Amino acid sequence: MRDTRIDRAISVCKKVVGTFSNSWNLKRGLADAQNQMKLPEHKLITESPTRWGSRQCMIERFVEQEKAIRHVLGADKKRRHLLPTWQDVDVLESVSKALSPLLEFTDALSGEQVVTISYLKPVLSLFKSEVLAVKSDDTDLTKKIKETILDYLNTKYRDDNVDGLLSVASTLDPRFKNRYNDDDQIMMSTLSSELMAMATQEESDSPGPSTATAQGTTAEGGADGGDDDDTCEPAKKKKSFGSYLKKTVRRESQATAMEKEIKSYLMLPAVDSDVNPLEWWKTQEIRFPRLTKLAKKYLCVPSSSSPSERAFSTGGNIVTCHRASLKPDNVDRLVFLAHNLK
């Protein structure tokens, strides 16, 4: 979202914060003003381009200390020109009111504990219903910011394939299940198709009895040292008509068992929102053997790239210019220790 009012207000905020960060006199005057006005004794926050949410933190702290900042700058003739206008303060307050609730959600989604892709659909629903819902006391700029963010999210996740992925992931999460799906029957059929495709893939990957017999015959022929090619060829067994019927009956029984398993899972009450879904599926693997495999497939996807970016940052802190001869295996071990020994 591009708005000249927001660009000007943020520019003024950056100049003021930069001036205070480079002057001990201003910092001392800010502390005295906080004591006089009974404001929280907080330092001003400088925006960092590589730190997510730092601009919002800077704006929020500036709005909190605006009275003390105005008092200090007003008493200094050389820096009085940095005083923000009331229009700038109104713009910063509107921006802070619209973005401050999102900061907590982004911090939670960027964590490393139990934050899978199944979280996205519930969070999007919560954004639309509560967090980014327009309120009566919102300013016009706050409303515009909220509407712009919602339009961006709707456009980003409008694709049918993406929406289907998020729906399946949230359904396989025992904390949410079908709470955020529009049509339960469509989800039932989608899960059944996924399970059937997985079963078919497992059957094709596993060696059949004829393959095992052929391998055994070949091994025996090689052990005997025979040169006759006819002895290595397995005897072809003719298939009866009943074998095709057995396949059909087996598929029908598998489909019925899968449908019962899905219904049994969906009928269970939702678990607490703080429960680790992967640990829950581990305890329920005997009860839902097929759905457990499907849950592992979807719930292993993280909701954001923050964990992997943290791993790269840790690797950059370990492999430096003065420590560039480490072997890859040692780097992997050091990164693992850095993330797990806390």
Rank of each mutant, 00 (worst) to 15 (best):
257 A>C: 06
161 N>R: 15
38 K>R: 02
52 W>L: 03
72 V>Q: 07
117 I>E: 13
184 D>T: 15
225 G>C: 06
5 R>S: 09
83 L>S: 04
28 R>C: 07
80 R>G: 10
151 D>L: 02
46 T>R: 13
284 Q>T: 10
48 S>G: 11
143 K>R: 09
121 K>R: 12
261 E>N: 11
182 D>S: 13
297 K>H: 04
256 T>V: 08
280 W>Q: 01
310 R>T: 13
68 A>V: 07
264 S>W: 00
27 K>G: 00
236 K>Q: 04
271 V>A: 03
307 P>S: 07
141 L>H: 12
51 R>H: 13
339 H>Q: 12
128 K>E: 15
117 I>D: 04
252 E>T: 02
293 K>L: 12
336 F>S: 14
224 D>S: 01
116 T>R: 01
313 S>L: 09
227 D>M: 14
173 D>C: 10
299 L>C: 00
86 W>E: 13
36 Q>T: 13
17 V>N: 07
121 K>E: 09
79 R>D: 07
100 S>W: 02
27 K>V: 02
208 G>C: 14
205 D>S: 12
94 S>R: 07
62 F>M: 10
318 I>F: 02
258 M>C: 05
20 F>E: 00
146 K>R: 14
89 V>M: 10
187 M>F: 08
114 V>N: 14
44 L>G: 01
112 E>W: 02
148 T>V: 03
182 D>F: 05
18 G>T: 06
241 F>Y: 11
251 R>F: 05
308 S>C: 13
24 W>K: 11
49 P>T: 08
64 E>A: 02
168 V>C: 01
9 A>W: 08
208 G>R: 10
107 D>T: 12
297 K>I: 01
13 C>T: 03
144 K>N: 08
197 A>K: 13
1 M>F: 09
235 A>S: 06
141 L>I: 06
148 T>C: 05
209 P>G: 01
259 E>T: 15
17 V>K: 05
56 Q>F: 06
225 G>A: 06
133 A>H: 09
45 I>T: 00
198 M>L: 12
235 A>F: 11
141 L>T: 09
252 E>N: 03
277 P>R: 06
195 L>H: 01
58 M>R: 05
25 N>P: 04
193 S>R: 06
161 N>W: 01
2 R>I: 06
321 C>W: 12
242 G>W: 07
181 N>H: 14
41 E>W: 04
86 W>V: 04
322 H>D: 11
339 H>K: 15
318 I>R: 10
41 E>G: 00
193 S>N: 15
300 C>W: 05
127 F>N: 02
242 G>V: 08
117 I>N: 01
263 K>M: 03
201 Q>M: 04
54 S>V: 08
57 C>A: 14
